[in-house]
């Protein structure tokens, strides 16, 4: 899938064309970006931090609907968690692709866009990432292994920005105290294991 197709798909998903500001923003998408210099410790500027926070909140927003009152990614500290995890648990390939993604977001002036425009950008990113992950998976299958996701990381280029920020947003949110308690039935000490029947609308157990 080339970029034009991706834009077309995303536009269709959003039920129409992109707005002019989004398309203008998109024109900056493939501008060459300055690569992160080798060996420099991973750190974010305040603008980049804000971008991370806004994207995380779009992935898992605060909701106030009567059937779903639950905090958002920002409420439970996901933005700081993402930065800490990128710094502590990832090596340079992932740190580079994460920075590359953030620089792109800066180039499209992500923070200046309205909510719909931001969602459009994320849809675009999602489709682009899907194509990239599929290509990786095929490469992996050829290696004779498509189960262990640790192996994906062995590919020279780091996992794409969207995959990283999405995984870390979900991990940070669904393992946070407020996130767990709002989302699941948290049981610290089950005391037994048994087969049960699921009740309508029953939430997952978390342990």
């Amino acid at each position: 899938m080339n970029r034009r197709d991706v834009i077309k798909n995303v536009a269709m998903m959003l039920g129409g064309a992109f707005s002019a500001p989004t398309l203008m923003a998109m024109n900056h998408w493939e501008k060459p970006i300055q690569s992160h210099p080798n060996g420099v410790a991973f750190s974010l500027t305040q603008i980049q931090r804000n971008i991370v926070a806004e994207i995380a909140e779009l992935i898992l927003p605060k909701t106030t609907a009567p059937n779903d009152v639950s905090p958002g990614a920002k409420d439970v500290g996901v933005p700081a968690f993402i930065e800490m995890m990128m710094k502590d648990c990832y090596l340079q390939p992932e740190q580079l692709s994460f920075m590359e993604g953030l620089v792109k977001m800066e180039q499209v002036n992500f923070l200046e866009l309205n909510d719909n425009e931001r969602k459009g950008i994320l849809k675009y990113l999602e489709q682009e990432t899907k194509a990239e992950m599929k290509a990786r998976q095929m490469k992996q299958t050829k290696m004779g292994d498509n189960d262990d996701h640790e192996d994906i990381k062995k590919v020279a280029k780091g996992l794409p920005f969207w995959r990283l920020i999405k995984e870390l947003t979900l991990l940070g949110y669904f393992t946070s105290e407020e996130g767990i308690k709002a989302s699941f039935e948290y049981v610290q000490i089950p005391g037994k294991v048994e087969n049960i029947k699921l009740k309508p609308n029953q939430k997952s157990y978390a342990y």
């Binding site: 089950p190 294991v193 087969n195 049960i196 029947k197 699921l198 029953q202 157990y205």
Partner: peptide
């Protein structure tokens, strides 16, 4: 889909 498990084996 109506089968579930309580506890972690």
């Amino acid at each position: 889909l109506d089968d579930y498990v309580y506890g972690q084996r």
